[in-house]
Design a protein around this nucleic acid. Structure first.
Lengths: 304, 304
DNA sequence: TTAATGTCTTTTATCGTGAAAAAACATTTT
DNA sequence: AAAATGTTTTTTCACGATAAAAGACATTAA
């Protein structure tokens, strides 16, 4: 497979799966444009979905009438792995190699080899590397190959330095937001979710990672600065793979972090800048520590 | 031209031109590997250059012996425009459109149209847009078009906010560098160049832009943080096109900036953190002002 | 006469291909 | 034997082509 294949139809497959879940809730589907907005795809894709649903006897489709005939079964879904973007596939492959050891700083990255290994075209790999380069882990040599800079201690320190600068500023901006700003409701909502998770920490501790990201993104958005907001992508990416990789004491770590978040939230709600600064600093310090302990000490890469 | 053209040989042409300038200085050229390092290209390209120089009677080439036969004439050089990277060509085209007015915030960017207009393939345009996206001026809609966010007042304010944060920190780090660090020599060198330019400001004021970049990059490097160092690319890009576009009171502006730089340099040399902070703040404030006044007030783009 | 459906056009995403350039390997010269 | 030159292989860069997906236009139903 994969030979001569121009473009996968993962957009269609993913939207189809999501549309199947909609079927449980209603007896008939809404209009095509409405479905398009709901699923985040074009009407062209919606019509492909409806066509297939008709073929497989899930719905009866005649112009406006889209009546649900039966509940979707497991076989109706497309397999998960077929719904991934090429970019996601490449990123996962690349990160696996990067974290699976043997990825020394200074090592050179070969586009062609990567493309062959993953089974995709070189163009997609090139585009991935260009996008990925902003994370500061790789660097391009002028009209030549890419160089791996490595997931090192230095990297973690540089990353967290910026993170702390940005988050302290965002948190201060957050606390200064007017009382009628919608962010306070979002914060309340997040506080509830934190409290809920704190109670169920023994069984649901792995749900923290997602909550963590939503919480910090909410704060960063208060900066109203696109560079600060965008930088959170770098942090999120690193922490995402870090969480996946390093499961040691995950439950304890997350329990501590939830406590820090709750204190941080309380400080924000107090709108006392001194308290906000202290709570933010405390949490960021332990986040940095967590990241650092997960990086094995190794020979320093040469600085250029 | 441009039809079916796979890849331009601009690397060769540019290196050839630079090699021609070398011919003036010596009676015979060094070894192939040495030339490669000197010109920053592979030996393959060096050999292509030597081949042509032999053909056009510039040198006699026999194995190690590469004797210069005559001085290069104007016709020997490849035209400047043939030595540009595709990326440079696309960037220039794109920035011209962006700054030449009519580029409203929210406007959508069409890869195919851009590619046709510039006369290049879509792949190159796509890769350019991905690389360019980190400047915060464009944004991609998931499996759809790019959206122009516009060179607005908000953009300038967000950019300068980060710049000030980063530069204040870098300047403090710089002042704390040990006396035997090589940066002090670099700083002395830059101070001399500033003084020289200050004296010749009436005739050479346009040489400031390049000096400005070298000065600020030196300071940012003291942060030893790749994200700070890389962010200067964004600033440099914006100021580069800003300088090209807005020539109003260029001489006066540059004269003021040189004065501020000299005060800034003196503060750094004093290693007094209070003075450094003050001098840095003062300069950054006027830099921001310069940028802001060049941006026409317009309707605010919608925030998402 | 608005909002849907039906149809056609354009754009995006991805591939294979081939020339330019780099890199690796083999051979010669000093 | 170290460093150059000569030769071959690989990789990067950029293109046109094609299927997927988006978007625009025409037609019909409420």
């Amino acid at each position: 497979m994969g030979l001569g294949m121009s473009k996968s139809n993962n957009v269609y497959k993913d939207a189809y799966n999501r549309c199947l879940r909609l079927l449980d809730e209603t007896r008939s589907l809404p209009s095509e444009p409405e479905l398009g907005t709901l699923l985040g795809v074009s009407r062209t894709t919606v019509r492909s979905i409806l066509s297939r649903m008709e073929e497989t006897g899930l719905i009866a489709w005649n112009k406006r009438a889209k009546t649900v005939l039966r509940d979707p079964a497991l076989q109706d879904f497309f397999p998960e792995e077929e719904t991934d973007t090429l970019a996601e596939i490449i990123e996962r492959s690349f990160m696996r190699r990067l974290l699976a050891g043997g990825a020394e700083a200074g090592m050179q990255i070969n586009e062609l080899e990567l493309a062959r290994e993953i089974g995709v075209g070189t163009t997609s790999v090139r585009e991935f590397l260009i996008r990925f380069s902003r994370f500061g882990l790789i660097e391009k040599r002028r009209n030549s190959h890419w160089v791996l800079k490595g997931f090192t201690r230095a990297f973690a320190l540089e990353l967290t330095e910026i993170r702390e600068m940005f988050e302290l500023r965002s948190a201060a901006a957050f606390a200064a937001l007017p009382q009628d700003s919608p962010v306070w409701a979002d914060l309340d909502q997040l506080e509830d979710e934190h409290q809920l998770l704190a109670r169920e920490i023994n069984t649901r501790f792995n749900a923290f990672s997602e909550l963590d990201e939503r919480f910090h993104r909410l704060i960063h958005r208060a900066s109203h600065n696109r560079f600060i907001v965008d930088f959170y992508d770098v942090i999120a990416m690193i922490f995402h793979y870090h969480y996946q990789w390093n499961k040691a004491q995950e439950r304890e770590r997350n329990a501590v972090a939830i406590g820090e978040h709750l204190a941080y939230i309380a400080a924000l709600k107090s709108r006392d800048l001194g308290k906000v600064d202290a709570a933010c600093r405390k949490h960021l310090k332990s986040a940095r520590q967590t990241l650092l302990t997960s990086i094995p000490e190794s020979r320093q890469p040469s600085r250029t």
